[in-house]
């Protein structure tokens, strides 16, 4: 999003204010925000991502500048420079290639590097046993009944009868 003041730089400060009982949000770049004296004043707080992106390549993260700039993900070819410009990584392997930087970033953004939520286990990765095929069908049957998809439920029930 562009700065509403200079229409040149990216807006990073989103200031919500009340004027005449109307809520308005003003989007400003860092410089224009500072000129208006609202730097860091308006909610929501800037994400730490911007600061981090700026820090990459300035040698502030414990890695010499040259090394960081030269690093490229072997899978997708993305560099930290690309990440700095777009804020997006190129592929899942970038998390390994830039692990040091990502660890640091995740700590700053989320206050943690450890996922404690649901663990993803792809059931398809294990060989399909007859027992598991039945479990899958039972689960599908349960879902179909729950969502009142009775035609599908009947079909699944028939398939279950064959394998049981």
């Amino acid at each position: 999003m562009q700065c509403e003041q200079c229409h040149e730089r990216e807006a990073v400060v989103h200031l919500t204010q009340i004027v005449d009982e109307q809520v308005t949000t003003v989007h400003l770049c860092e410089r224009c925000a500072a000129e208006k004296g609202v730097e860091g004043a308006g909610p929501p707080a800037k994400t730490p991502l911007g600061d981090f992106l700026a820090a990459i390549g300035k040698g502030q993260l414990g890695v010499p500048v040259g090394t960081v700039e030269l690093m490229r993900c072997t899978t997708c070819g993305a560099s930290l420079q690309d990440f700095r410009e777009t804020g997006r990584l190129g592929c899942a392997d970038c998390y390994r290639t830039f692990e040091l930087q990502m660890r640091d970033l995740l700590r700053r953004v989320h206050g943690s590097t450890h996922h404690v939520g649901e663990r993803y286990v792809r059931r398809g990765s294990a060989p399909v046993t007859a027992e598991r095929a039945q479990d899958d069908l039972r689960e599908q049957l349960r879902l179909a009944v729950e969502t009142e998809n009775f035609e599908l439920a009947a079909e699944i029930r028939d398939r279950l009868r064959v394998v049981e």
């Binding site: 994400t47 995740l106 953004v109 996922h115 939520g117 993803y120 792809r122 990765s125």
Partner: peptide, 22 residues
Amino acid sequence: QRLAFAFHPEFGYLTSCPTNVG
């Protein structure tokens, strides 16, 4: 179960922007 999602043992689900990871 039918697709293979990108998942990291420590970071969790991997996303294009690190602000969504986990």
